[in-house]
Design a protein around this nucleic acid. Structure first.
Lengths: 169, 169
DNA sequence: GCAATATACTAGGACATCCAAGGGTTTGGA
DNA sequence: TCCAAACCCTTGGATGTCCTAGTATATTGC
């Protein structure tokens, strides 16, 4: 993604849609495509910041989630539900985090099907450092104005609720 | 993604951030996380619609791009730039599309380094059908209100420009 | 004109995501 | 009580993305 393009490719796509008679859906198409691209940009920024910690965003999210859990441990299926990713993605992340000594698996005390994941001391320390780095280098300068942030939270919150992510509110 | 959660996990994360004294970046964190999750939801919807055509979003985007190109052909590096993905991702997509008979590689007439990708007749037909399906099943019912769509286009457009995607406007 | 630099594409590898399937554990109804 | 259905996690496979190199072709500069 070296040199900036002379024109916005998504705006061009929107114009193409309109030119082909799909004007009624051109704007939503552009908005959705813009979300895809924005996610890509943000993910790249985040992973750049996490790289020195040898973390990816997926693994960081799991560490952060665990660091906020009261007991410091969560069943894998719970983590899967809260992170809203497929159970196999959690398995994958835990495998790598465990290999790095950041989390540990332990059997659930009463349910033999369930595996608990727990932060190790190093895991907790690294989660703190990584969060501080993300706060300082990404979130503090998100690229969105304060009003836009509020608007995004509201609009995307409604979207996620309607999509079936959660029920409350 | 089975059962809806009782509470919005991103709103919870935002509260956690505030509780830990990072209130100044809690909102941007939530907005960015929401963008990530929204992208995931949208991508899943799109891929569901494309599945009957045996297309993924990455391959569809390439087909659609070619279908709008004047000559119906583009150099791979141009496609990479316009789709804003790594050149190897385009190589990957072209490999599969070519195997499916939807595009063809041809040498650039004057530059021996460059490879042109061109739609085949089937590729053009499939692109039309897939676009019609996406328009009907995803874009026409994006889940965003008209005002929100406009707002997203504007805010994310500014973000992408500031991020260096393009210069104009 | 020729060597050094730049550009274009591809190969191989690391990661992440999902789906399908399999093996173990619990639950619940006959 | 006991077996079927439900649930939890893991394995294996398909895709996509990126990065790092490597090969081939163009361009530049001396």
């Amino acid at each position: 993604m070296g040199t900036p393009l002379p024109r916005d490719p998504i705006a061009d796509a929107q114009r193409n849609w309109e030119r082909h008679g799909w004007g009624d859906v051109a704007a939503p198409m552009a908005a959705i495509t813009a979300i895809m691209r924005t996610q890509q940009i943000l993910l790249a920024r985040i992973e750049t910041v996490l790289k020195p910690f040898e973390l990816t965003f997926a693994r960081y999210e799991l560490l952060a989630l665990l660091s906020f859990a009261r007991s410091g441990a969560l069943p894998m299926n719970k983590a899967s539900a809260l992170l809203q990713v497929h159970p196999t993605s959690v398995t994958n992340a835990v495998d790598r985090l465990e290999k790095a000594g950041l989390v540990a698996r332990s059997p659930h005390p009463t349910d033999g099907r369930t595996t608990l994941i727990e932060l190790t001391a190093e895991g907790r320390t690294l989660a703190k450092k990584a969060t501080a780095a993300l706060n300082a280098e990404v979130f503090s300068n998100s690229g969105f104005g304060s009003d836009d942030v509020d608007h995004l939270i509201r609009v995307l919150g409604t979207f996620r609720r309607d999509a079936g992510d959660f029920t409350e509110e």
